[in-house]
Each structure stands twice: as C-alpha cells, then as structure tokens.
Design a protein around this nucleic acid. Structure first.
Lengths: 224, 224
DNA sequence: GGTATAATTTAGACTAGTCTAAAAATTTGT
DNA sequence: ACAAATTTTTAGACTAGTCTAAATTATACC
C-alpha cells in the first residue's frame, strides 16, 4: 500500500502538476516535462513508465499524462512543503523573496508529517507564500485564487498586488527595485494602446511605467 | 577545486568522524563503518576508494582510514547542521529530545551556507544541542567537552547533568520518565560496589537508583 | 491523402551506490 | 612460526536515473 516515492519522482509529479495547471487543467506532454526539468525526452519516458507502474499517473504512450488522485496528493504535499518553507525562510530567517526558491527546492523533500504540521503551526498557518501563491492545507485543498495579471484588466482604477506569475530571481529583484511588494495598491492611470504599457502609481507615490511584460507577470485584484 | 560531495558521501564522512572520536582519535576500520552504516564491508571498500580519490580520506588498503583536513571540515559541517536543526526542532517546534534525530538526519544535508548562518543567528548561536552535544562553530571549531560519564567518578557529591553519550530513543525516553533533564543537579548519595549502581537524588527530590548502564550513559560535571 | 516534420519511444550504454560470493591479506593462538 | 580465524578487497551483478542514437508514431501541410 505504502509505495516509496523518491526525490526524483516527487520532482516529476510536481512538474506534471505545475504544467497541467498552466492554463486550464490539461494533459501534459513528454517534451513539456523534459523542457521543464532540463532533461531528455527519453529520460522522461522511462520515468513516466515507472510512475504509471506505481499508479501515480495515467499514461498512454504517445498521448499525454495526467496525475492520478494519489499522484495529485503527492504533488500537492510537496508544493505545500515548498511554500511553507518559503514562508519560514522569509518570515523567520529574513531572506528576501528572490533568495528562497533554491533552498525550498531542497527542503520540500524532507519527509516528516509531524514536522510539517508543527512548522505550519509555528508560522501561524499561513495561507500564502512570499510570492502570493496559495499554500495547500493539510488535506490537500488549495484556495483557488481568482486574481488576474494586471494586463488583462486593461482599465484604469485601483488594484491590489496579490502575487506574481513569473518567479525568476531577476523579475522579483526588479519588483523590489521599483518598490513593489505584495499588498501594495497599484493605481492604473493610463493604459497605452500602442505597446500595452501601463502608467501607474504605487501606494500614492510618483507615477511610473510598467511594460506589458511586467504587467502580465503581476497578479492583482480589483481594490474594494 | 570545488568537488561535489553527495549525500551518501557526507554520511560516510560523518560516520568516519564519529567512529574515530569514540575513544581517543584513531584510525577507523572498514567493518566499523559497515556496522555503523548498516551496509556490507564490500560496499564500504568501494566508497573508501571514491573518498580517497576525492582527497577526503587517507586510505591504505587493509589498514584503517582517517579523514583529511578537507574530509574533517566536511564532516564537521554536517554535524554542525545536524545539531543546529535539532535545536530548531526542540526550541522552536517543541519536539521532544527523543523525536528529533531522524528528521535532523535529513535536514543536515540541506546545502546552503547562508541558510545555516541565518539559522544559527535565529536560534541565538547555541553552543549545545538538546542532548548536550557541542555545536561546532562556523569555522569548524568544536568545544571540547571535558565531562565524563557519571560512573567514572565513583564518588559521592553533586554533579551537573550536561549531556548523554547514548542517543537511543528508548534511553532518552527513560531519562524523561525519571524526570532527568539537561542542567539538573544529581546528588550521588551512595555508590554500590557489587553492581556499580548509584543511589542519587535529582534536584533534591526523592532518592532513586541508577543502574551502571544508566550511569555510564550520562555525562556530568562536578558541581561548582 | 500522402509525405515531411515533429514528438515520442526503444535500444543500448553509463554512473553511483548497493549486493553476494570468492579471493587475498592480516591477525591470532598455540 | 604456521595454521585457523577474521578482516578486507576483488569480481561480477543489480537498480535508479541519466544519456545518445535510432526507430516508431503522430501531426501538419499542400
């Protein structure tokens, strides 16, 4: 009953989960996984067979794969651990939000339910990680975040910055350098038609411009 | 210059360090290592060749091994991480001292100097772990603890309980059940010649007996 | 609808880490 | 000092996870 899942297998399951949720829920291809994990398609095929053997994915050769319920639970648990450790690193050890990903990639594989339960409590049962991503609860339930990238609103008005959909170090550092943090209020003053850039004010400071690239990478909610 | 050291290799280095310090510093045999790590002597021989290749140990076939300076630094760093994480688990997450070993065995392999430096600071730069073992500092320097097992004193008087030299879960639970914690004062009222058991008082409570097995597993300092 | 291109799988090979069985070296005991 | 016992190493094999190169299947375009 209790199949052992290796660190490598956990990373494949996480990759499949992540890729299948990029747009609406969908099947994931071998090449998508090999790109995401930086290894070769042949390697992925081997692993998919192993994961199917262990009933963690549904796999039909030449078609995509998707997670079984057991595979989804495993992936979600790894994501829960990753995000809780990120909160620990930022809230308790004062790491910056662009410094925590690599360390959390290691910590997410530490295996102890008791540890995670206690860490969760120690951190005050946080609902979101430092990048605004929702943290699955102990039962694997995930808040569906209905926030959209700023560039999809294309309207003037006040928005609350609730998360990012681009997690690269350089992008996060860019946001820090322009003084944007989660929870800040972004007032869109103009949307420029020709390049889809945005003229905005952050927390009533001086106006600045967001390129479409930036506007498409930050998640906002309409401010109540 | 920067050789990559795997998790498995780290565990071998730690084992060699630990075994070589059991009594006075000494060479370690293949069989000692295979017993300690629960694998076969042939497996150990293979690994010793690899570690010697990487200049982490001095190895001459059929004679023992000992760590090079590089090997010692690596082992000490793993031990530092293990003991810091144990402090975290007990002080911050309220684990009991008999529950932390297995989790720390995983956490000790997390690779990030920055993380360890910040964790150390967060914990208040502790000098000892929850079992009284000294925590090496960032430069790999270790407090030499001059404490001896209680049974080597064989004298009446007051002693301070500063650590254990037996780390099994059952032994730690036994100490908890008799109400003995690090820092407690043990008053030796009698030493029984025939079985080397000890009649003692803990913190001025009622008298009780320590078998020689218990007395040989607890480290004490003469109380000033 | 058939062929060119792209995606995927198969075949065979490699490394790290483990094993068993057998050979070699060392240590022990008289 | 030499035979017996013990320790250690060698030889050969296995698994997980990876690779390259070749074969196969799917897709896309005229």
């Amino acid at each position: 009953m209790c199949v052992i899942i290796s660190l490598t297998e956990e990373n494949y399951l996480k990759a499949i989960y992540t890729l299948s949720h990029l747009f609406e829920e969908s099947e994931v291809s071998t090449n998508q996984i090999s790109d995401h994990l930086n290894n070769k398609a042949a390697t992925v095929t081997d692993m998919l067979k192993r994961l199917a053997e262990k009933k963690l994915i549904h796999y039909i050769p030449y078609q995509g794969v998707k997670l079984t319920e057991k595979g989804r639970q495993t992936a979600i648990k790894v994501i829960r651990k990753h995000r809780l450790w990120e909160v620990f690193l930022v809230d308790k050890l004062q790491f910056k939000w662009d410094e925590v990903h690599e360390i959390a990639e290691q910590l997410e594989h530490i295996n102890s339910d008791e540890l995670i339960q206690r860490l969760d409590k120690f951190l005050g049962k946080p609902k979101f990680d430092p990048h605004g991503d929702p943290i699955p609860d102990a039962n694997g339930l995930l808040n569906i975040v209905k926030a959209l990238p700023l560039n999809q609103h294309k309207a003037k008005g006040n928005f609350t910055f609730v998360g990012v959909c681009e997690h690269s170090k350089t992008f996060l550092q860019h946001l820090t350098s322009i003084g944007l943090k989660i929870g800040d209020v972004i007032k869109v003053e103009e949307v420029n038609e020709f390049d889809n850039s945005f003229k905005v004010k952050i927390n009533k400071n001086n106006s600045q411009f967001f390129s479409n690239k930036v506007a498409s990478s930050i998640l906002v909610e309409v401010k109540k």
